[in-house]
Design a protein around this nucleic acid. Sequence first.
DNA 1: CGGATTTGACCGGCGC
DNA 2: GCGCCGGTCAAATCCG
Length: 162
Amino acid sequence: MCKDSIINANQFFYRDERGVSFMRGRNAIGNYGGEDDHNNENDGKPRLRVSTMKMKRIKGRKKVREPRFSFKTMTDVDVLDDGYKWRKYGQKVVKNTLHPRSYYRCTEENCKVKKRVERLADDPRMVITTYEGRHAHSPSDHNLEDSFMGHLPSSHLTNFFC
DNA sequence: CGGATTTGACCGGCGC
DNA sequence: GCGCCGGTCAAATCCG
């Protein structure tokens, strides 16, 4: 039951800010891989990550999905500048899509917002950008919000909740 | 030279 | 229980 509804960008983000109930239970997973790989005597293959990968994730707080907001835009560029600095941390090709999906994360440490940019196989010029979480800081020093909010026509934003 | 990107491996969840 | 699939990490590489 995924219905498409073309709404205004301002209404979209306003709704985002209102209906948000993001969890902050997951702390920084900086120490994801322990460095105590005692058996790194793999000759020639330093790529082995043999650490136990002990993630301190609370089992009880699982499945508390933070709100995801996806909208597709017609743009030629892969990543549109929305005022935040994103660092790409992954790229994967999923089955149904021809093009690889890119995974971005906000560079701010306080901000743990993830972004996922997927390009449609049917229309290569159509890009689905999915935001996950909410920013906990100011966008950037200069007003890029004007270049994002004001620049995009409201009728070109298609929001769909699944 | 430092930080962002690349890219293969790895992990967890889910389906069979 | 095994394998597929999506998501993430991190060493290596690239680029300013």
